[in-house]
């Protein structure tokens, strides 16, 4: 399944991660120290952001650093994504309805 950018930024932890790495590239451990949660949970949030292309990772020595894709953030129009998401949800319902009607 393709990731929905709106869902990615709807989560408050992920928004905080974006705010933190907007200043400096950070490792999952360094990020986790800013939250009352596990490194594993932070890694999962990072993975979702990577899948949306909002965040990139690069290896530096033994550590992986995550940085914000500023250009992608600039492209992101929250209003537009929300509006588009409403139509995706409606058409999902319509696809199912049409499948039912075909039977």
């Amino acid at each position: 399944m393709r990731r929905d950018i709106f869902q990615a930024i709807a989560d408050p932890t992920r928004r905080s991660i974006i705010a933190l790495i907007a200043i400096n590239a950070m490792t999952p451990n360094a990020l986790a120290s800013n939250f009352n949660t596990t490194r594993q949970a932070i890694s999962k949030h990072l993975q979702i952001l990577v899948e949306c292309d909002l965040v990139h990772s690069h290896q530096k020595g033994r550590e992986i650093y995550y940085s914000l894709q500023v250009e992608k953030m600039k492209e992101l129009d929250v209003w537009l994504e929300q509006y588009r998401n409403i139509w995706i949800k409606k058409f999902d319902k319509l696809d199912k309805l049409l499948d039912d009607l075909k039977e």
Binding site: N85, I86, W87, K89, K90, F91, D92, K93, L94, K96, L97, L101
Partner: peptide, 9 residues
């Protein structure tokens, strides 16, 4: 039929 799909979940 409209009632089945026009409101997003």
């Amino acid at each position: 039929l409209l009632d089945e799909w026009t409101a997003p979940a």
